[in-house]
Simulated scan of single mutants.
Amino acid sequence: MERLIERGLFAARWMMAPMYLGLALALVILVWIFLMELWRFVLIVPVMTVNDAILGVLALIDLSLAANLLLIVIFSGYENFVSRMDLADHEDRPDWQGEVDFSALKLKLVASIVAISGIHLLKVFMDVAKYPPDQIRWMVIIHLVFILSGVLLAAMDWIANHAKSLKHRKAMLQ
């Protein structure tokens, strides 16, 4: 009975697969929005100011970072929680794929969120007159919370890894 329950629970990981397929569809949507944004950007080139150029480029960078974040979640999540991808011999396989554990995934996600938030904040600062001071203040506070969360997450991982290595060293000495 125990073995049957364990096999059933282990097979339940496949319920995550449709979620990763849905995230792949979300990536298609992001590509579409990126192309639409790029088209709008190209259309205003003849009358573009320096600020328009910088804001347009930042919008494209923002979308590409969001897409990168989505790829990290799709690849790492699928490999960590569903199944290994049999693509070791594929010439285009990213070097990091298969090596990102849950701890590294959390740090990559937080780093990507901080980068996206920072770019969004930079876009706001480029056109600061459009935003009320309270809204800017909240955006800065939220960005700082993202940064603090990332630092605390990294510190917690460092402490956990340090504790494991100390425990391992003690076991080796005995």
Rank of each mutant, 00 (worst) to 15 (best):
L43G: 13
N161G: 05
N68W: 13
F146L: 05
L4S: 12
L30T: 03
V28R: 11
A26Q: 00
A155R: 03
I147Q: 08
A17V: 07
M85S: 03
R169T: 06
L63M: 13
S112Q: 00
N51Q: 09
L107D: 03
R3E: 08
L105G: 03
G8N: 07
A115K: 00
A104V: 00
G22S: 13
R40I: 09
S112R: 01
S76F: 03
K170H: 10
V50Y: 14
A160T: 04
W158Y: 11
G56K: 12
L71T: 12
A12N: 12
E6Q: 11
M1E: 12
D127W: 08
V124H: 01
W158N: 02
V145K: 07
I136D: 08
W39P: 00
G56Y: 15
F146M: 07
R3S: 09
S149Q: 02
V140E: 05
W158Q: 01
M48A: 14
D101C: 09
I119C: 03
E91I: 09
I113Q: 01
R13H: 11
I44W: 15
I54R: 04
L166Y: 15
L152T: 03
M126W: 04
K108A: 00
R3L: 09
L35V: 11
L35C: 12
I119E: 00
E6C: 09
A67S: 15
L9Q: 08
V45E: 08
R169P: 02
V140A: 10
Y20N: 08
A11K: 08
Q174P: 14
D89Y: 04
F125T: 04
P46F: 08
I147V: 14
F10L: 09
L166C: 08
